[in-house]
């Protein structure tokens, strides 16, 4: 496994930490995500999935935020560490 693997947040495993490189979302949702700390460069940790598999909870900017599949498949980043 190489050190700078690019993947979608949705595809990351629980326990992975991902540094955001790109948000493929526009409009209000992009603004909301930015407000919450999903900014390029930020490190996001995958915490857990909800009982039905979606949404997924992420740790970002010292808070826990849940995102649906629709959004987390549009956020890309590089894997920085995994468990």
């Amino acid at each position: 496994m190489n050190g700078s693997k690019i993947l979608k947040l949705f595809d990351a495993n629980i326990g992975d930490a991902v540094r955001i490189t790109h948000l493929d979302i526009n409009g209000v949702m992009r603004r909301r995500l930015l407000d919450l700390g999903f900014v390029p460069g930020a490190i996001v940790k995958v915490l857990r999935k909800s009982p039905l598999g979606d949404p997924i909870a992420f740790r970002v900017s010292q808070t826990t935020i849940a995102l649906r599949k629709e959004e987390s498949t549009k956020i890309e980043g590089e894997l920085v560490s995994y468990e």
Partner: peptide, 12 residues
């Protein structure tokens, strides 16, 4: 319409 704008904070 498509479901949109979902973010949910899980506070401690």
């Amino acid at each position: 319409g498509v479901p949109t704008h979902y973010t949910l904070e899980l506070p401690p």
